[in-house]
Design a binder for these strands. Structure first.
Length: 1043
RNA sequence: GCCCGGAUGGUGGAAUUGGUAGACACGUUGGACUUAAAAUCCAAUGGCCAUUGCGGCCGUGUGGGUUCAAGUCCCACUCCGGGUACCA
């Protein structure tokens, strides 16, 4: 029986589906294990070989865990909302749901073909109303919650209202927007709208006027993580800052817990580091600078608030800088400076984010004419505005310490502001900052010029400065975060509608029993004429009572933030998920996905989970215990080299002339003023010009004129003549050189049209006259081009010609991103048909470590396919099953148990590539031993199942078992089969391995030393030298030091 | 600029705790089988030198160091990839 992968794989995929083999039970005495993949956005292009890489790894692990007796939850679903389907809807009018459904079908088919052990009964789709009901539900909970700093968790807003009613807000310590203090009486006297307005400052989901990333091309706002280098992540369109009323989530309330939680999870360090940077915690002080002279309208102003991480350098603060958007700018600007300041503010406002980013080095700013007082020494310092100070970070104002901050330094230099050194590098003399090339930013040194701080080191001085600030009431110690609240509105159609309506302009949430609020039909997927989001087009988009519903929709991360929880209990209609299900499954044990989600999905879902944790719904504070980033599979592009005919003709002619020995009297690339000619012979004053015939005919009159003027001679040669009739051309040129005929020589011979010409990669000087062109990788095998297929690929290449090397056309290659336009996309369907899913699974794992990026190269897949067939031949010959019940020998047991140990260790450390190698070694060795024994081959089938489940099932059935192999116990490793009596010691001299010697494993060190030194092979290394030292590491190595 | 990761044959990679560098594959070359092809099998395959045999020297991005012993540890640097970008 030959290995027929197509038949086998179909058979077992059907079996698994019919028997619901991989269904996970919510009630089980077995321990649980939750293996999750980041669910995909089903794009129209379908899967390419890069997508399943992580799925295969997680599937192997899930299957392995089942063999270990775990109840494994391994679900799959779809992140179904997304821009591509909506952009397609805008272009074609097709409802995004239709497109999405179609794409999901395709994905499902492709996924099924690979033989994943997903429990498809638990599939979720973010765009399914029964799913997004709970996304909306969570939003309602966020809306009705606030963050209590005292208890350090989210609490119901109703409790807050009660406090306001009885005691006002002075005793409340919340993460909230700036809110004036009010008493209970004042609260109770407020109108409902006023109260709602106040509450909005506290809600975890809140509506506010904020600076947002507005992307005009997409017609929507974007969250910070959706903007990369000033462009939208999807599509790469420009993004600008804009003040808009938007929903936000108060994720900043969780900043510290998000940071702390990172220490409790087993994630790649780089990913944790990325999140730490994104959260951006900095410790410092918040302090106030008083204005030097009173300003009208600011009589009660408490002073300009500033955040600094270096309160120790306060004595070195020689000026202040406000962000152009700072509210104070308008008020403090002196009449003399008004014009310049207003102009600067206007200029800064109109600058795009991108301009701002690319012009980082440019120093700009303007003096306001106002002064502040240094709170420690009372010195008067000028207040400037500049856009290097960001309105969105800290307080939007800084104290500038030019001596110790590089940005302040360059600003001070540019505007000639004073620089005072206050930190001195230990062991160095203080120097005049005027002589400095750069600031001294280091966080170490001794304080100078700093009053009471003098002599302290930086660390101590920071503490002392904060203490002083707190003592005098000037400021307080403060921790600041870079993390911003997440903007949660999108002006798009294809997303979850907000369960929100407006009464008197104030937002209220729908009652929970009216969920889900379904996405309405619209006539077009575009904004309205007045610029409102697409949902404003929906008819009757209002509540039963007639209140208008919110027209924004939620962003992509809304639906993906807690899908792992819904998988635990996906069909629950009464609640998000049952307490029992959550108590059992708890959180994800292994999560596999790409690291592009570091600052987006993986932060949002941690936040979302923590909120549900505060609510008492989720029982674990972190959603993903262990996380692995699978590397990207890059494309391997193939290139053909298309000849540039003119360059090629020049090249050919020149080569020929060199051969004829004319390289000395003919100049190539001759220049006469601004004119350029291909070749020139000075002695005979002959110019040689090569061009296409068309061009030559057009240029003829100009050349005539030029020749007449300069009294030179010129021969014009059509490209085709050179390429197709070199000898004749050479004769012509020779004649022309010898003759004295004046004027232009142009022989209008019979000329064929030139066909596209391609040169093979390794031909000499190829790069001088050809340009690389991406060619479809399916037309290339082992870098050799299938010329006939290539001719049919594109009509314009139908009669192309080729310059070969060794009778072949060899293509070049390069590793780059897999994309349609580069013709390097490898789709798994073709490979599965040819080699089977088991081969694909093995090969993807065999490529290299799971977490590394690696190029896709189909070449190696043959080797893995060969391995599977070789394995098959241990069980079957041409026509029958050949496994026998003979007793296995010791060497056979040794092979098996070595493999069990290796595979188990490799799988535990997620080293799947070496696992595949272990199988190959095992099969090679068993083949050499001609082993067809059940005692060996039965356990081997179980070992194989996680990697190549179809083949394993078929083998298992042939071995006479019923009911499938997927839950059979993993083979036990037994040390006794690996015991060796002797060890083959590598013996090195001065660290270089010279020979090996077999010695008993239990031989004592001194015996080993004696035996080795006495060995025959040792003599030539010892001879004439002194033995200085002998190192014996039992069962490892012997090293003899001679000299 | 700052932070993180990486660099090993022609290619993908292995070497898990400092202990035989190049496992396992691909590719290449030669051979067997075959009318032929496919499939399969065998042999060689880091570089250089010597090949009559033994063999020898060099070699994990570069330069230095620690050690009996370094791909692995330390210092300095080069190049490549990713993140971030005036975050006070």
């Amino acid at each position: 029986m030959a290995y027929n992968h197509q038949e086998i794989e179909k058979k077992w995929q059907k079996y698994w589906q019919e028997h619901k083999t991989f269904k996970a039970e919510n009630h089980s005495k077995k321990p649980k294990y939750y293996v999750l993949d980041m669910f995909p956005y089903p794009s129209g292009a379908g899967l390419h070989v890069g997508h399943p890489l992580g799925y295969i790894a997680s599937d192997i692990y899930a299957r392995y865990k089942r063999h270990q007796g775990f109840n494994v939850l391994h679900p799959m679903g779809y992140d179904a909302y997304g821009l591509p389907a909506e952009q397609y809807a805008i272009q074609t009018g097709t409802h995004p749901e239709v497109t999405t459904e179609k794409n999901i079908k395709r994905y499902r088919k492709q996924l099924d073909q690979i033989g994943f052990s997903f429990d498809w009964d638990r599939e979720v789709r973010t765009s399914d109303p029964s799913y997004y009901k709970w996304t909306q539900w969570t939003f309602i909970q966020l809306f009705h919650s606030w963050y209590n700093r005292r208890t350090d968790k989210a609490e119901p807003i109703a409790g807050l209202v009660k406090q306001f009613e009885t005691a006002g807000n002075s005793g409340v310590d919340a993460v909230c927007d700036e809110t004036p203090v009010f008493t209970a009486d004042e609260w109770n006297a407020m109108t409902e709208n006023q109260q709602q307005d106040i509450l909005m400052h506290y809600r975890l989901a809140y509506l506010s006027e904020t600076m947002v990333n507005w992307c005009p091309a997409l017609g929507t706002v974007l969250a910070n993580d959706e903007v990369k280098e000033g462009l939208s992540e999807r599509g790469g369109y420009p993004v600008e800052r804009k003040l808009m009323k938007q929903w936000s989530l108060r994720i900043t309330a969780y900043a510290q817990r998000l940071l702390d939680g990172l220490n409790t999870v087993d994630w790649p360090d780089s990913l944790k580091e990325m999140q730490r940077n994104w959260i951006g915690r900095s410790e410092g002080a918040l302090l106030r600078f008083q204005l030097a002279s009173p300003v009208k309208g600011l009589e009660n102003y408490k002073g300009i608030e500033v955040f600094t991480t270096r309160p120790d350098t306060l004595f070195g603060a020689t000026f202040m800088v406000l962000a152009p958007e700072h509210e104070l700018v308008e008020k403090i600007t002196s009449p003399e400076q008004k014009e310049q300041v207003e102009a600067y503010v206007q200029w800064a406002k109109n600058r795009s984010e991108r301009e701002r980013m690319t012009e980082v080095k440019k120093v700009t700013g303007e003096f306001t004419g106002a002064y502040a007082l240094n709170p420690l020494n009372g010195k008067k310092i000028p207040i400037w505005i500049a856009d290097y100070v960001l309105a969105g970070y800290g307080t939007g104002a800084i104290m500038a310490v030019p001596a110790h901050d590089s940005r302040d330094f360059s600003f001070a230099r540019h505007f000639e502001l004073p620089i005072i050194q206050v930190v001195n590098k230990a062991g160095e003399e203080p120097s005049d900052p005027e002589t400095w090339d750069e600031s001294y930013d280091a966080k170490e040194g001794v304080m100078i010029n700093s009053g009471f701080l003098n002599g302290m080191d930086v660390k101590k001085a920071i503490r002392a400065a904060i203490d002083k600030l707190e003592e005098t009431g000037i400021g307080t110690g403060k921790i600041n975060f870079r993390l911003r609240d997440a903007i949660f509105s999108r002006q798009r159609y294809w997303g979850e509608p907000f369960p929100v309506y407006y009464k008197n302009g104030m937002p209220y949430t729908l009652p929970e029993d009216e969920l889900p609020l379904k996405l309405p039909e619209v006539d077009k997927y575009l904004p309205t004429e007045t610029g409102e989001p697409p949902l404003a087009r929906a008819k009757n988009w209002k509540t039963k009572e007639g209140y208008p519903l919110e027209t924004n929709t939620m962003p992509g991360f809304a639906g993906s933030s807690a899908y792992y929880l819904r998988y635990m209990d996906p069909h629950n209609e009464r609640e998000y998920f049952s307490k029992e299900a959550n108590q059992y499954w708890r959180n994800v044990d292994l999560y596999i996905g790409g690291d592009e989600h570091a600052a987006g999905h993986l932060i949002y879902s941690r936040f979302w989970n923590k909120f549900l944790y505060d609510l008492g719904l989720a029982c674990e504070p972190e959603p993903f215990k262990k996380l692995i980033n699978q590397g990207k599979i890059q494309g391997r592009s193939s290139f053909v080299y298309r000849v540039n005919m003119e360059k090629y003709a020049e090249h050919l002619l020149w080569e020929r002339m060199k051969k004829m020995g004319r390289a000395n009297d003919i100049i190539r690339g001759y220049k006469d003023g601004r004119r350029k000619f291909d070749f020139y012979n000075a002695e005979r004053e002959l110019i040689i010009e090569i061009k296409s015939r068309d061009k030559l005919e057009k240029l003829e009159p100009y050349y005539e004129a030029y020749i007449r003027k300069t009294n030179r001679r010129l021969i014009m040669i059509p490209i085709a003549d050179i390429i197709e009739n070199m000898d004749v051309t050479i004769d012509e040129i020779t004649q022309a050189l010898e003759s004295t005929k004046k004027g232009v020589i142009f022989n209008r011979g019979k000329i064929r049209e030139l066909k596209p010409l391609f040169v093979s990669k390794n031909l000499v000087d190829r790069n001088l006259y050809s340009t690389p062109l991406h060619v479809d990788i399916n037309l290339v095998d082992n870098d050799e081009l299938d010329i006939e297929a290539f001719k049919q690929w594109r009509p314009e290449f139908a009669d192309a010609e080729f310059v070969l090397e060794d009778g072949k056309y060899i293509c070049g290659y390069e590793v780059e991103k897999m994309s349609k336009s580069k013709h390097n996309v490898q789709n798994p369907d073709d490979l599965i048909e040819k080699y089977g899913a088991d081969t694909l699974r093995l090969y993807e794992m065999f490529l290299g470590p799971i977490d590394q990026d690696k190029p896709w190269d189909t070449k190696g897949i043959e080797g893995v396919y060969r391995f599977l067939r070789k394995l098959w031949r241990l069980y079957f010959d041409e026509d029958k099953f050949i496994v026998n019940d003979k007793k296995a020998t010791e060497p056979e047991f040794k092979v098996l148990h070595k493999t069990i140990k290796k595979l188990r260790d490799d799988i535990e450390r997620f080293s799947f590539n070496t696992g595949v190698s272990a199988f190959m070694i095992c099969v090679n060795e068993l083949t050499d031993l001609k082993c067809h024994k059940r005692e060996i081959l039965e356990p081997l089938a179980v070992l194989l199942e996680p990697y190549a489940p179809h083949a394993a099932e078929e083998i298992w059935e042939s071995l006479g078992h019923k009911g499938g192999v997927s839950k059979v116990d993993y083979p036990e490793f037994d040390e006794k089969y690996l015991k060796e009596d002797t060890f083959s010691y590598p013996v090195s001299f001065n660290g270089k391995m010279r020979f090996k010697i077999d010695l008993p494993v239990d031989m004592p060190k001194n015996e080993v030393e004696k035996t080795v030194l006495a060995a025959e092979e040792a003599q030539r290394w010892i001879e004439g030298k002194t033995i200085r030292k002998v190192i014996v590491v039992p069962k490892r190595i012997v090293n003899v030091v001679v000299g």
